[in-house]
Lab assay of single mutants.
Amino acid sequence: ATNIVGKVKWYNSTKNFGFIEQDNGGKDVFVHKSAVDAAGLHSLEEGQDVIFDLEEKQGKAYAVNLRIK
């Protein structure tokens, strides 16, 4: 899925991951530091509006192509 809109539920910059809540009511999506770095960001803030693509690997969904809304 592409261009999914959501809000950062939480992001832990020490542990380098967090979760994004989808605006469409879907399951929360894992986001890793690598996606944050690829977006040219240092971190994510709770409540921040983002747009992302959804990829699945080994049955787990995660956010890629992250951008600030």
Rank of each mutant, 00 (worst) to 15 (best):
G6N: 01
I20C: 02
R67H: 06
T2M: 14
L66M: 05
V29M: 04
G47W: 06
T14A: 15
N24T: 10
F30W: 05
V36F: 06
A35S: 11
H42E: 14
E21P: 01
K57P: 06
G26N: 10
I51G: 06
S34L: 12
I4Q: 12
A35Q: 06
G6Q: 01
K7P: 02
A61I: 15
T14D: 14
K69T: 12
K33F: 09
G47F: 09
D28A: 09
A35L: 03
V29S: 05
D23S: 15
I51T: 12
R67S: 06
Q58N: 12
G6M: 01
A61L: 15
L44I: 07
D49A: 10
Q48N: 15
L54V: 15
D28R: 06
V50R: 00
A39T: 09
E45P: 13
L41Q: 10
E55Q: 13
G40S: 10
A38Y: 06
N3C: 04
A1M: 08
G25V: 06
Q22Y: 13
G47A: 08
L44Y: 02
E56V: 11
K27N: 10
V64W: 07
H42L: 12
K9T: 03
F19H: 02
G6P: 00
K7R: 11
A61F: 14
F30M: 04
I20Y: 00
V8P: 01
D37Q: 06
G25D: 10
K9H: 04
G26M: 15
D23K: 13
Q58D: 10
K27M: 07
N16P: 03
G40D: 08
F30G: 02
V31H: 00
V64Q: 06
G40R: 12
S43P: 09
G47M: 09
S43H: 13
A35F: 10
N12V: 06
Q48W: 13
S13T: 14
V8C: 03
F19Q: 02
A1T: 09
Y62A: 12
L54N: 05
S13A: 11
L66G: 00
K7S: 07
A1Q: 10
F30C: 03
N3F: 05
E45R: 12
